[in-house]
Write a protein that binds this DNA or RNA. Structure first.
Lengths: 290, 290
DNA sequence: TTTTATATGTCAGTTTTTCTCACATGTATT
DNA sequence: AATACATGTGAGAAAAACTGACATATAAAA
């Protein structure tokens, strides 16, 4: 037989669990701390079990509270996501796509005009999101590189394999086809978010990764590429992000690119593919393979 | 900024989505149909979007409703599960373990005495559940055979690999080590739930699966084994389920058993492993490897 | 077609829940 | 000890949800 405790009480508890503070939870839910205190107590009575207890000036979760909180947080996040989605799609709101700042700047922005031409009916908003960040409410989809398997509770539309390779200023190597191990004599640049990039590439080329000497690590891919552009050394980057620089001759990639297990994918919050998401995915696939 | 619609309205909508009927939903939630109708309407206003529409005598979900319902159902199921868990563990309720009827009858029941001796403090209730069925509220864990990968939102404690092999009455083959292909001349028994069992075993033995001729299919493993016991033919069964019959000499397994990709696992509803679950898992692992 | 049974939609009034505000109490910092 | 900050609790007010009655819509039976 069905029997859930008061949902509002669960919501109050959830906010308390997130903030570990009744007053902070109260502020979040736009009520007074008294209301929260009462709701939590109510929930404890309904579950016949203490969930939070005072700990100094704030509160702490009990064992049972901790277990329950794991579920409530996941659950309320999903609910919020889903409601937001419904509300925004009903209001014919623009489709909000999140992607990393570097991808945004180096791949997407240069192709926005083309997108507008190809899909004039698609109202797209772009926003930079943290590389590994989950989909937030307010964002309809996220474009990111990652390795399968994909999480089961999200839909991931695979768009293209990731290909990485060393890139540098054209004046660094003058020859047509320099030997790969000439790299070792040059300063190498990497990003902190992908420490595996250089070793991965080396293994694909048959070079011992332990010979690598990294000269400098950058916080973001963008900074690393700027470094390569001013001649700091040799960067390792995904092909898509340097296409423009290669085309215009500002960078060269003498050894080409090798495929990695990573895939560029369009991550959707739920299982459903909205028409806008499908349209965008189709266009992205086409644009990426050009 | 956070903003969820009324949770009670969501709950009402969820019940409507499940039953596709306002009155049925009303009955489930112990309120009148008017209350449900109002709540759904309220939700539609808050999301600014129609979710259900009249369809003849009942109601049907709109596109948006369908999408939302997927989330609400998952979410409320999880919530109920979690609350149930907390409530029962607080009440020091017995640990309820579900497993298939055949495993229950042929493996677990014969070892209950042993379990009671080994873990006297573990209050265990057993209940037969459908092979592929999800964990219901009221059940703390389920014991089942399945192939990895495991779902991300559940904890699965792997206990042992599945090993299957042909079993039959001892009077069917008198020799010590009959050749495997002698099987083909005997009537073969299978279960509908594991049509892959015979082909799997054959491939492991180097026999062409297409030569197999299945004589009879049974609804449940138990029935098939009963069939083998009365001499209907050769059954293919997991080792654990026939251990007792082999020990007592009622069945023989001349070719032994081969490992399959399946694993016997203890499936828990959430991420957490309760003390009782850990105790049970440890005992199971030990008992299975005896 | 008319009738009947079954559903949903809506309203006014009532019940229940939840909230606020005020004050009490508990805990760390000064 | 005094102060600042946080939680606990009460009575009354505000908000939300529910009921019961009636209106309306649909499908099947007469």
């Amino acid at each position: 037989m069905h029997s859930l405790p008061s949902l509002n009480a669960l919501r109050a508890f959830d906010a308390v669990a997130r903030t570990l503070s009744m007053s902070a939870a109260a502020k979040q839910l736009h009520v007074t701390h008294g209301a929260i205190s009462r709701q939590v107590k109510l929930l404890e009575e309904q579950l016949d079990c203490r969930l939070v207890e005072r700990a100094g000036r704030g509160v702490a979760l009990t064992d049972a509270g901790l277990r329950l909180a794991r579920t409530t947080q996941e659950v309320f996040d999903k609910l919020e996501q889903a409601c937001d989605q419904v509300k925004r799609s009903a209001a014919n709101a623009p489709f909000v796509l999140g992607c990393s700042g570097s991808f945004l700047a180096r791949w997407f922005i240069p192709r926005l005009e083309q997108l507008k031409q190809d899909c004039p009916e698609l109202e797209l908003h772009l926003t930079a999101v943290d590389e590994s960040q989950a989909i937030r409410p307010g964002v309809d989809a996220v474009l990111r590189f990652a390795e399968p398997p994909w999480p089961e509770d999200q839909r991931v539309i695979e768009l293209a394999p990731e290909r990485i390779g060393p890139v540098m200023r054209p004046d660094l190597f003058r020859e047509e086809a320099p030997a790969p191990d000439q790299l070792l004599q040059h300063p190498l640049l990497e990003t902190l978010s992908r420490p595996q990039a250089w070793p991965q590439w080396c293994r694909a080329q048959g070079i011992d990764p332990s010979q690598l000497r990294i000269k400098q690590s950058f916080e973001h891919l963008n900074y690393m590429l700027e470094g390569a552009l001013v001649g700091l050394g040799v960067a390792i980057a995904p092909e898509y992000l340097v296409e423009e620089d290669l085309r215009t001759g500002r960078l060269q990639a003498p050894w080409g690119f090798v495929e990695t297990p990573s895939r560029l994918g369009l991550w959707l919050p739920g299982q459903d593919i909205s028409p806008a998401a499908q349209l965008l995915a189709d266009w992205l696939r086409a644009a990426l393979s050009r």
